[in-house]
Design a protein around this nucleic acid. Structure first.
Lengths: 182, 182
DNA sequence: TGCTGCATGTAAGCTGTTACATGATTTA
DNA sequence: TAAATCATGTAACAGCTTACATGCAGCA
């Protein structure tokens, strides 16, 4: 059995949220909205769209204005497949492929200077990420109504913020601990 | 430029922690200790070991007891490469490829029944994981001395526990919130 | 001596990345 | 009309997964 493909389901979800979307706009979603928990480049997206049209999950239309653009929309079958996928419960936690943990793992000595260095860098990265996430929450969800209209999206953004804050707090605590005991 | 390979560095780290280790034991590390933040199967490990011997990062020895087993140890060059890698600071945060977030993302309606279902399942998975992590902290680090001898490992285990607890708390809070407003 | 697990290895195939490539559209 | 960006597509290749395969060691 090959590795389970989930890219087509993500694309179904994107098209469902934005009917008449182009391949380029779908690709852009992976750089912004979805980028926190999945990545895909345009060279993955275009062939996938072709396959999905071929399988009858979506259909495409062209416009007179722009000869090259193709506008994709879900078929009934596609909508059905998306809903079925959304209803299937998750069976496993993801593996956090994390260079920070990996490097720490191999450092044995408590007083190794690389430990505070790695922590300091991780803090910089996480703080920058937190700032970005909070700014996005403000722009994407400026009022209660926008939250109600996209509740799942709101939830995971809130979750990402909470998680990042938690990690920052833990790193700060550890940093302090190491300094005190040094 | 191809995707950056980090598997050989992980293997260097493992061999450094356990000189005279076999390929099978290295593979086992990915199922236990390192499994939380990196995965690799034996069909990846064995060819990689061959390459690393070829490149002079490690050397292998055989035993009379077990003709098939090969015992790997770092060369000076390998040790140097490992330390250089450990000293290089991380430049990017990892992408959390996460089905839970992904599915929530595509559910718009606040009252969609799949939201509490997904959350409940995620709680089950995280609680199970937390239990496993805490049990491991107890067995791997039974006393202060074992902590001092493998401080980096201790840190990331503590971090994983903290992160998991944070996620559980957030999910519980959200679950409660949804129930109240239902 | 048959079975289970140890130990290593190879092959096929799929996913995803980077790079290369082309033409259309908009803007200066 | 030249440059930048839009929009799509293909090619080569690296990385990883699953499955297939072989022989040895220990045990009943």
């Amino acid at each position: 059995m090959p590795k389970k493909r989930i890219l087509p389901f993500i694309i179904l979800g994107i098209i469902n949220n934005h009917p008449q979307i182009t391949g380029r706009e779908i690709t852009a979603e992976f750089d912004t909205e979805i980028g926190d928990f999945w990545r895909a480049s345009h060279s993955q997206v275009y062939p996938e769209l072709k396959r999905m049209v071929n399988d009858g999950w979506i259909y495409d239309a062209t416009s007179k204005d722009n000869a090259k653009e193709r506008y994709y929309t879900l078929t009934d079958e596609g909508r059905e497949i998306l809903n079925k996928w959304l209803g299937q419960l998750v069976t496993d936690l993801p593996v956090h492929e994390d260079l920070f943990s990996l490097k720490l793992f191999f450092i044995k000595d408590k007083h190794d200077k690389r430990i505070p260095q790695l922590i300091a860098r991780q803090l910089v990265l996480l703080k920058k990420d937190l700032k970005y996430l909070m700014q996005r929450r403000q722009t994407v969800f400026p009022n209660e109504k926008t939250i109600q209209n996209n509740y799942g999206h709101y939830l995971i953004l809130a979750r990402a913020i909470s998680r990042t804050q938690g990690q920052i707090q833990w790193l700060k605590d550890t940093q302090k601990l190491l300094k005190e005991e040094q």
